[in-house]
């Protein structure tokens, strides 16, 4: 499933300009060291973190999409960095579990 399709089906609006890559897996974590070690390529990362190092870590891990939960919004410089990496950046109003349920319903295992 492409980033744009996942966003559309979960009702998310993009915060930045992104590359519409294929999403193959999901990783949920708020710990940056855990995320960089485990997120893997072509993943959607679901997290509470909003800072630049999060984008750097997700980019190194090969993530295609980041969903920031609990209605948190990244600052403009974070959005600018996400633009440079091409990772799709999204904000979701509810918590990680609520978004995880949506992903399960879309067929992610």
């Amino acid at each position: 499933m492409k980033v744009s399709e996942l966003a559309q089906k979960t009702g998310l609006a993009a915060i930045n300009e992104y590359k519409d890559r294929e999403i193959e897996r999901v990783y949920i974590s708020d710990m940056v060291s855990d995320l960089i070690a485990s997120a893997r390529t072509n993943s959607v990362v679901v997290t509470l973190q909003t800072h630049k190092s999060l984008i750097a870590a997700a980019n190194l891990a090969g993530a295609a999409m980041i969903v920031i939960v609990n209605g948190r919004k990244p600052s403009e410089d974070v959005v600018a960095l996400a633009n440079r990496t091409g990772i799709g950046l999204f904000s979701y109003d509810l918590d990680s579990w609520a978004f995880a349920k949506k992903l399960v319903n879309l067929g992610f295992e």
Binding site: S29, M31, V32, S33, D34, L35, A37, Q49, S53, L54
Partner: peptide, 16 residues
């Protein structure tokens, strides 16, 4: 609060 400081950094480096 930024998601660091869980004592994973150096073990991650060693593991890789």
């Amino acid at each position: 609060e930024m998601g660091f400081g869980y004592g994973l950094g150096l073990p991650n480096i060693k593991k890789n």
